[in-house]
Write a protein that binds this DNA or RNA. Structure first.
Lengths: 361, 361
DNA sequence: CGATGCCGGTGTAACGATGCACTAAACTAG
DNA sequence: CTAGTTTAGTGCATCGTTACACCGGCATCG
């Protein structure tokens, strides 16, 4: 019931608390092996566990990293959070999870709070175009890693970013469709001025141009500026898009590139609302390759993010103490996973199916 | 950069640190309004924020609750985590999230760690049949709330539980199918000896009996005892089940009740693998009503858990200080959401069948 | 041989907030 | 007017750990 303190251990081992502390902090070179062993035995026998609060009070440090995601209700972020925790556990860290709901105020509040709580670093999944609202905290020494948001021109240079190459991702998704013969494509995303969105859209345009198609001639769609859709509501965006694009007078597209899988799935749902069939009437490519992409009917073609690798990298950067390499930006290459939601616009050809396990542990 | 301390505030307000502390802890009756105001102004001007570590070291308490879920990679748990955070935020609490991956060791380690870190309470999402591995910690004063796991006979009496009435849920799902005219039903779940599973299965049986059907005569399926499927792999379970049930020599069921939506979706995927159509050839009912149930094609009929309400309740119980009402068990009523994955068994006759005799119960 | 350096380890003052025990002043009652 | 009580606020020890400064003893060296 009463917690064991370092003094009790010291007493039991016949040394001073300082020596126990030295052992605990890896300064074993300052003691003879026999002493080390005595202390270790005492620790084991008494079941001693250092008191974190005391430790933190003294050092100002924690073994915790903060993770701020738009919403763990979104399977992509849930999966990422899980991977980050796995990585953290492996190096004895804790993850403190926060949902920003893409609210800049909330995001800032969380960053401040985490910083005040002395986290070692923060992995921030934000797509805000600027980090101005965090600049001062970063300057004061916060170790910040942005995920899924490549470094931008105006960012504080101390910030490190980890993300996929969105341009390539958008390109892969789009050229897959053009290669299948599609000539009328639409890029579907929420109205959020998200950074990853512009990259993906640029890739979309590049691929179109490569296929001698004019991006400007494509039917376009963006969420109405009004409601700033959250991450869980991403599906709503897609559904709305399908309704708008296929119920108007304008000739609808035959292929869709969605900003993420939730939006893509929502879009598929919207098509169904109107009796249209994904992979036959319309081809849809998603982004992220969440676990549900493969389960969907039809299984969704998607651009996969190497989530596990990205989680380790993010953690690593968030924990780095000194050898700061400011402005470092890690861009990983995404991979297109072709499934059944895409086909030639004739609807006749059956595409290749790549079935891979998406999960690890 | 240097953090503001309570002393600096005290100096600025011309009082002693004790008085500031008194204000901070709501003991405002011990000071004259003018003083209170002066202190408040000083706090605002200096931007003072109490140091949590120091506070915790002194008091032994936190404003944190622990949440242990099988895996936030699973959308159901992701959604729940999000709701709990919303509830916590409203009362100024933090949530420390941990993924147990349904590993009892990991679960125990997390509980211990959280307890040592002084969390105010823990919301544990475990379906383990016994809580013996946590009994001693609970006796030592841990405020433990189990979610999605109704109280069991051998549980420590201090434990409070919040969950839906699984028996009712299983009953609703199943009687929906029998009312549609289905007479051959199978209950699909992983092999985990999860508590919610038995409740749901009992509801399944009750409903069958109510429709004059014999549970024992139903084609059964349970995951092979070997691999203990995790939560993210729940979909695999369903897919496997579909393969087994519809590729053998035994006459397959026309209706399925799955232990949760992920399994249900996996099952649908498995049906598709064999060219069968959900809602036509086979009816499928899921459990949880995750956001993707509605997006699926066809939209999935599912038993909805009132997740938001359950989150507030869980938090409330986890934070309660004194007025313990031991062994309290809150059972909420689930609700059936009928969508397109269920219909009358008019469909064509099913293929031939094999037998994978897993045993239910 | 005295000085120097190193090894193995200890003493102690914090880190920042809390809350009990205490008190000076003001007020109340008899 | 004195004793008792309330009001408004203070002093100080303390939570458990850390890290810097220090120290005695022994080996080495010029």
């Amino acid at each position: 019931m009463t917690r064991v303190t370092i003094q009790q251990v010291a007493a039991a081992a016949g040394v001073s608390p300082s020596t126990v502390s030295n052992l605990l902090n890896g300064r074993t070179n300052r003691m003879v092996p026999a002493t080390k062993e005595r202390i270790e035995r005492a620790i084991a026998e008494l079941g001693y566990r250092p008191n974190r609060a005391a430790r933190q009070l003294r050092t100002g440090r924690t073994q915790t990293v903060g993770l701020i995601v738009p919403s763990v209700g979104n399977p992509f972020w849930g999966a990422f959070a899980r991977e980050l925790e796995v990585a953290a556990l492996a190096v004895g860290c804790n993850v403190l999870l926060c949902n920003s709901e893409r609210d800049p105020d909330r995001e800032r509040r969380y960053v401040e709070e985490l910083w005040e709580d002395g986290v070692r670093g923060i992995v921030l999944c934000s797509s805000l175009p600027t980090l101005d609202h965090l600049a001062d905290i970063v300057r004061r020494g916060l170790r910040l890693v942005t995920f899924d948001r490549p470094a931008q021109a105006g960012d504080p240079e101390e910030v490190v970013s980890v993300s996929i190459n969105n341009h390539v991702g958008g390109f892969l998704a789009t050229s897959h469709l053009t290669e299948l013969g599609h000539e009328r494509l639409t890029f579907v995303s929420g109205s959020l001025a998200a950074v990853n969105r512009t990259g993906r859209f640029r890739g979309f345009c590049t691929a179109l141009e490569g296929a001698d198609l004019d991006p400007a001639a494509m039917p376009t769609w963006t969420a109405g500026g009004g409601a700033p859709f959250g991450d869980v509501e991403a599906a709503q965006v897609g559904r709305q898009a399908a309704h708008d694009l296929f119920s108007g007078t304008v000739e609808p597209p035959t292929g869709i590139v969605a900003i993420n899988d939730m939006t893509a799935l929502g879009f598929c749902r919207g098509l169904r609302d109107q009796g249209l069939h994904v992979g036959k009437d319309v081809s849809v490519v998603g982004f992220d390759d969440i676990i549900l992409a493969e389960l969907y009917d039809p299984p969704l073609t998607s651009v996969r993010q190497p989530i596990s690798r990205m989680a380790s990298l993010s953690l690593e950067e968030a924990l780095k103490e000194d050898d700061r390499e400011p402005g470092r930006s890690v861009l990983l290459r995404p991979e297109l996973v072709v499934r059944d939601s895409t086909a030639s616009p004739t609807g006749a050809t059956a595409p290749v199916v790549t079935d891979e396990d998406g999960v690890l542990q």
